[in-house]
Amino acid sequence: MEKDNIKIDLQDDGDVKRMLSSLGRVDAPNDFTFRVKARIAEQKAASEHRGWAPAFLRIAAPAAVTVAVATGGYFALIDNGQAPLPVAAVEETMEFAPPQSAEVADAGPSVGSDIGEPSIPVSNAFADAKPAPAPQRAQARESRPAANTNEGGGSTVRAAKPPAAPLLPRGIDPQTVIPNTRPGDAAGTHRISDILQMIGVNAQRGAMGWNVSGTTSAGVGGRAGIRSGDIVVAIDGTPINNTDTIKGTATIRSLQLIREGRRVTITFGR
């Protein structure tokens, strides 16, 4: 068919179809097959060269990133108080909720605080006891009640076999547990000096807050980094600069200090 023999007259769809079918065809170049084979060989060689390691990394790297992000997010939530502390961290949290009674505390699992946190009973009844050794702390972890329980809970093992020694958080000196507390005083008023003394911090009230004069070597406060010269200005965000007592569950999660003019927050439980 010679050039220009086609008269294009677009009256209907059939004309369009005829026009398009009259277009010339474009063929592949002569070396097309060779080039395709070369590409295939190149990709095969590349995949063999990569071996198993890149394939492993393609799977492992995203998985590692996912785990890292999830872990980071979890601890970020803990920072914000939106996630429960891990069991190991709970050990370090100072709980000052006194037990309902010495018998209750001695016979079974402790009673959770009103904010749903697991608590360790502390009472004058334990005044003569020594801190629990590590195996007993592990037992304490077993026997802690689930979150948001207001009463009861704990393990049946613990209930059936009461511990030989009172269970106290690590760093709590049983000689210095909160004095003058009464059963049912968990959400009552506590003396700040007692609270600080329980975590091994000796402090006197001053103009700006509670001036730390020293810490005991085994106390939680000293191990958390509180040192002489610090000024404790708040417990869990509640200012204590002009008061001797604090109300609430007496559960310390953080202390706010002034150290060398800078505000420092020390968080327990991690």
Partner: peptide, 19 residues
């Protein structure tokens, strides 16, 4: 194009661009 002889080059290009 090697086989582009059914419609002349200019017309073909016009159609091709329209497509």
């Amino acid at each position: 194009l090697q086989d582009d002889h059914l419609i002349d080059g200019e017309t073909s290009q016009l159609i091709q661009t329209a497509i």
